[in-house]
């Protein structure tokens, strides 16, 4: 890691589906499982609701990493939202990697409501990987500061 300011911590934006992953994250907390505090969570009705724009926009706004998490295949509250999303994410991830975005910045996972432990480990993995990469630079237009986040 070069030129990283002292004390820098990655900021990860997570889109969690309401029915599985959000509940999973909740369970992580209830079970008192520790995970890095670098994540800010946006609750979405379904991983299928996550437009690729959201992910790209997050990168443009200076988030160091993005995580989208939904129900396991077959468990979608809307039957197939996550399956349609899976194709979309696959193409997006491959394309972003192709233009030179570090693959570890864009992450996807399936976390069920019962997998509090998995959520913690996914977040830990993502945070560690992004930490190793250093602050996002590619595609960043303006870096939105933590302190300004709540006002937006």
């Amino acid at each position: 890691m070069k030129n990283v300011e002292k004390g820098w911590e990655p900021r990860i934006l997570a889109f969690l589906c309401n029915w599985c992953s959000y509940a999973g994250a909740d369970l992580t907390g209830i079970s008192r499982i520790q995970y890095p505090p670098n994540v800010r969570i946006v609750r979405v009705p379904c991983s299928g609701r996550v437009n690729p724009y959201y992910i790209i926009k997050a990168l443009q706004c200076g988030w160091d990493g993005v995580l989208v998490s939904g129900c396991h295949p077959g468990d979608c509250h809307y039957i197939s939202g996550n399956l349609v999303a899976r194709r979309r994410f696959a193409v997006l991830k491959d394309l972003l990697e192709y233009v030179g975005i570090e693959p570890a910045r864009v992450n996807f996972s399936w976390v069920s409501a019962a997998e509090g432990g998995k959520f913690a480990s996914v977040v830990t993995e993502v945070v560690n990987e992004v930490k190793a990469l250093g602050p996002a630079k590619r595609l960043v237009k303006v870096r939105i500061e933590w302190k300004n986040l709540k006002n937006r």
Partner: peptide, 16 residues
Amino acid sequence: PPLGDFKSEDPQEFIK
């Protein structure tokens, strides 16, 4: 078009 469609066996090696 394939992006409006899916198969249950679609590859998902990139998903954690």
